[in-house]
Design a protein around this nucleic acid. Sequence first.
RNA 1: GAUUGAUUAGCUCAGCCGGUAGAGCACUUGCCUUUUAAGCAAGGGGUCCGGGGUUCGAAUCCCCGAUCAAUCACCA
Length: 576
Amino acid sequence: MDHTGLSEQEILRREALVKLNELSIDAYPAAEYPVNIYSTDILAQFKDENMPDKLKAVCIAGRIMSRRIMGNASFAELQDSKGRIQVYFKRDDICPGDDKTMYNVVFKRLLDIGDIIGVKGYAFRTQVGEISVHVTEFTVLSKSLRPLPIVKEKDGQVYDAFTDPEMRYRQRYVDLIVNPQVRDAFVKRTKIINTMREFFNNQGYLEVETPILQPIAGGAAARPFITHHNALNIPLYLRIANELYLKRLIVGGFDGVYEFAKDFRNEGMDRTHNPEFTVLEIYVAYKDYKWMMNFTEEMVEKVALALHNTTKLKLGDKEIDFKRPFKRVTMYDAIKKYTGYDIGGKSEDELRQICQELGIETDKAMGKGKLIDEIFGEKCESNFIQPTFIIDYPVEMSPLTKKHREVEGLTERFELFVNGKELANAYSELNDPIDQRERFEDQMRLSAKGDDEAMFIDKDFLKALEYGMPPTSGMGIGIDRLTMVMTDNVSIQDVLFFPQMRPEKKLEEIDESVFVEIGIDEDWAKVLVKTGIHSVKALKEANPNKLHQTICGYNKKSQLGLTNPSQEQVKGWIEN
RNA sequence: GAUUGAUUAGCUCAGCCGGUAGAGCACUUGCCUUUUAAGCAAGGGGUCCGGGGUUCGAAUCCCCGAUCAAUCACCA
């Protein structure tokens, strides 16, 4: 077996695997293992008297997370999908006959932390009081060849925690094995989605799927990923939103549709942005944005209750209360409150002037809507810690939104802010095809002015509206952001199993055999590799005297006890 | 993209003014029949991120690069 590049511990584990095979033990057996209970169920159902029959013959399987070996008795912790339980191995119970191999050799010498085993036995309480499983029989189910990080814990204090973010994200499986709070956040994420789905289904709304590959990336303003379809020889975009497709379905006669959608945006990555992210969008016919506000706060409250059994939850050093009803503040009132300016009816130039007075940078490409958005974003947004609906956005910022029924220049739109961040966005959907066409044309003009976020025109969507879409309200909510809020995580990477990472730098394959092939003694070939000569080419380019010094120095420093080659020999390697 | 910081054993980290690379856990060997961050004793394990430079001598100082993190910029 070639052990090049493996650490001592990895080599030992591979050797243990070979020895298991020699004992005719399959370290990767095919057969079903008849698990009949989870660790957590044993802990929950255990009774010191009148032990339930179920616990008198348990069969569990999981990963060995720690071992304490004391001669003929040992304790280990077994971790299954629900939690951990201590298991007790006693030599003469594992090996009732004369052959003590299963305990002395297999358990004590050939198993390691990280191996997956199955055990059969009965529940009991140790002298120290810990509920445990007394093992009568164990089976190797999977040998682990890499050592796990060892995380220890006592009285809630965690020692040697596995925390390096890069390793946690690149090797999420290790993170999940070793950090229970990580697993918990992901279980909560799924529970959030399930709660929402159930809420929607109970109202009779239809879960649908719409295209991810779109000929026009519409429904939002963002840079898309672009790809190419060979058979049709056309460019296709990964969707940045699914809004326009869901509305087509409302045109088609469904009166409530929703989709948990992966969207893709070819933009920066940071603590709150990942190039692919999940959004829930829902559209309901014959409703307006006021109805949608009630619907949204009911949904969010349900999610909080489903996860925490309370509407109050901790977020960093703050407490957020998701109890209905949430506050409703118009965008103009928010700006008035936090800046003192009343921007109602102000012209573009006047707004630019206000921005200047507030110290907000502007540029010529910004229209009225964008300027107001900047003021709100700079001065107001971060103040809304408790769940708050900001309502009635300027028309320029909202090209897909119906005009306000009362106030000129506004639209029927709200965004939900929690902890100073936008969580959800909703409208009374614009269903007037002529107005919609004009709004798209306004976007084109913004685009011509240099606004690279302006939307494209989707002619087929306009065609759909021309057939008639009922009055409809739609809402989108970022599932990743919602999960961050609900699980008290500040980073999107902590709520995505596999966040986007830069590709890992590939290490050169290191192998001394290339040097052995050109006639160098194997021991010295290894030294060459160790001292940074990774190819024959690198060797040929080396300075003979310097190389001689380097390898002799390494021999001495590492106390290898090799006989140093002469300078002539080293020169020979380089020149031969 | 900018600034700052980080990168040392399988993991968590120390290493001061440049002078033979350290600790705890993990691992190996021995002792131990209800332990629990098990314990006791002994031992093995390092491309100090990579590349250059200064120096008699670099983990340490300087330069370049890679990666990660924080902050900012960008991002409905």
